[in-house]
Each structure stands twice: as structure tokens, then as C-alpha cells.
Amino acid sequence: MTDFSPIRRALVVSASAAAATGLSGLLVPAFAQGLAPTPTMRGGANNYRPGAPIVERIGGGGFWMTGTVRRAGDGAPLPGQRIQIWAHTTEGHERDPQSHGATLTDATGAFRLEMPQIVPAFGQPHGHLAYDDPEFETVFLRPVMASARDTSLHVDFVLKPV
């Protein structure tokens, strides 16, 4: 099973950049010339609690959720964007309030938030991320870890202006 995971991860996590440019580019003419927006993933919004507080760290930490946020089309990095993160971890279920937190992207459009170790739940070790603010269209992601032993997960957002 672990053998398949890197492929799945490549498909799922990097879908935003590589696949989207090629595939969705055809479907979204406005972005045909540039970076296509990241589509929401199936199940991405499960157990979402809107308005998770911006925190230094979720719980005790030990696991890093990292990523970038760029604008569709020109790919410009988007600073100051709020990314909400939750997962089933060693410190709580997805539904538990303490499993949720948010962070802001820095000047380069990158974000990183420390959180407790994600553990397999509902059959896969996976996290949830949301961009849910007025400026761009809402996106919910549900990346799957290549291995349950991983201590970080990287996710790229490409957002479409509203």
C-alpha cells in the first residue's frame, strides 16, 4: 500500500500546479495562458469548523503543515492569506475544536503551521486545509500523506479571484 502512496500524493497534492495547468487550463479559458486555480477536493470540507483561530501552533506540535498560496493566472505569491488547517492527530479527532487552527501566508505567499502528528483515520493519514475568505474563491483540500510516518505535509494553493 505504501508503494502506491507517493503516486497518489503526487496526484493529489501537486494537482494544483502541474495537472491543473494542463487539464483545467482547457476548461477555464480565462486561465489558459497561466496557472489554473486549485480545484476543491472531494471530502475536503469534511468536519470543517469555520473561523478557526489564528494560532502560533496547534496543540503540542511536532508535525509541520507547509505550503504556498498563489494567484491563478500570473502565479503571483499571495501574502497575508488565511489558511485553516485540521486533521485527526495524536491530540484529537477531526471534529474536536482543538484539532483546528489557522495561519497567514508570509510575504512570499508561503505558510507553515506546526501541529500534532497526523495519524491515519478513516483509512488514510490525511489532513484538511481550507481557504475560505471573500477575496478569492473558496478551496477545500484533503491531501493524503505518502506515509503515516511522515512528519510534514506540503500543499500548494492556486486561488481564483472572486
Binding site: R42, G43, G44, H93, E94, A121
Partner: peptide, 23 residues
């Protein structure tokens, strides 16, 4: 029991709308 643990995941599964292939 899965429903009580995470209702949206089970609803996704029962409606054949789950992201997980095993559901």
C-alpha cells in the same frame, strides 16, 4: 460507529461520493 465519529465521511461513502477508493 463511523457515522458517530465523522458523519460527513460516512455520508460521502454511502452516497458513493467519497475521496477514498475503499469506501
Amino acid at each position: 460507529g463511523l457515522w458517530l465519529t465523522s458523519p460527513p465521511d460516512v455520508i460521502d461513502a454511502l452516497t458513493f461520493n467519497s475521496p477514498t477508493p475503499f469506501s
